[in-house]
């Protein structure tokens, strides 16, 4: 059983919701990421989603775009990102880490080389925003043979027959994009999320997490009742940007405080 599946199975036994948290590697500095990851786990994050900086992050809103730009000022790469995961694994063997990013850095490295390095570093999953099911065949083969989960997005616009195909190819969990738009947008509609999760939930046994419009304890709670977990990102990246210039420990504290709030809200369900 993959580390991601193991985590969901334990959460289910304990009646808890998954908290998945996203930060961009190297944002705002190279030194900030590792302490932030450990602090996130300490404050109740179940799965870390580590953003791979890219020059053209086309699905991101302004907040996360800025995070990518800050990281790229220090030329943080995909190779660097896997090195951070390897470092994290030295002291944490239980928290799943998935990489979230765009196709081109992986294309440049080569699928097979990437999959080897990811496995060696202790990466548990990959979410490539611009590799939909149809374009994923070759990379998926490499990931499958190394037990790295491929995390797929489902959108409000995804047709049911397509969602069924995606679910059949997915492992780990499914990530429902709660709104039409980019990360961090402000128009979360809980009723529509409920309707779609019911529709898509019937297609699969996989856990379903919701992300893209969740910014605080209240919105996290309102969505968590409908799903197996929530994904937060923009609110953390925003905090990391604002903490620019502070020490890695101070940055980690800023992120930890947000997470602690949301964790409490989820545990109160």
């Amino acid at each position: 059983m993959s580390r991601i599946s193991q985590t969901f199975s334990e959460l289910k036994q304990n009646g808890r919701k998954a908290l998945v948290a996203y930060i961009v590697n190297g944002d705002p500095t190279r030194e900030a990421t590792l302490p932030a990851m450990h602090k996130m786990v300490e404050q109740g994050v179940d799965i870390i989603e580590l953003g791979v900086p890219f020059s053209d992050p086309m699905a991101e809103g302004p907040v996360i775009q800025k995070g990518h730009e800050r990281a790229l000022e220090h030329h943080v790469s995909l190779t660097d990102t896997m090195a951070v995961v390897a470092e994290f694994r030295k002291t944490n063997q239980s928290t799943p880490v998935l990489l979230m990013g765009y196709a081109n850095p992986v294309e440049r490295m080569g699928y097979s080389v990437f999959a080897d390095k990811a496995e060696a570093a202790g990466v548990d999953g990959l979410l490539t925003v611009d590799l939909p099911l149809e374009e994923l065949t070759d990379l998926k083969r490499e990931l499958d043979s190394r037990d790295i989960d491929n995390i797929f997005l489902l959108a409000p616009t995804t047709r049911v027959e397509r969602a069924r195909d995606i679910a059949a190819n997915a492992s780990g969990f499914l990530y429902y994009v709660s709104l039409k738009g980019v990360t961090g947008a402000g128009h979360l509609d809980v009723d529509s999320v409920k309707q779609k999760l019911t529709e898509f939930g019937a297609l699969t046994e996989l856990p379903m997490c919701v992300g893209f419009g969740i910014k605080d304890a209240t919105s996290a709670k309102s969505v968590a009742v409908l799903a197996d977990g929530v994904v937060i990102g923009s609110v953390l990246v925003d905090a990391m940007g604002k903490a620019q210039g502070q020490t890695p420990d101070q940055i980690a504290e800023a992120v930890g405080a947000i997470i602690s709030d949301i964790r409490q809200a989820l545990d109160s369900l």
Partner: peptide, 14 residues
């Protein structure tokens, strides 16, 4: 070529 976009846009392209 192909269609390398996020899931949200697949419906619009279809």
């Amino acid at each position: 070529g192909g269609r390398f976009v996020s899931e949200t846009l697949i419906y619009a392209l279809d």
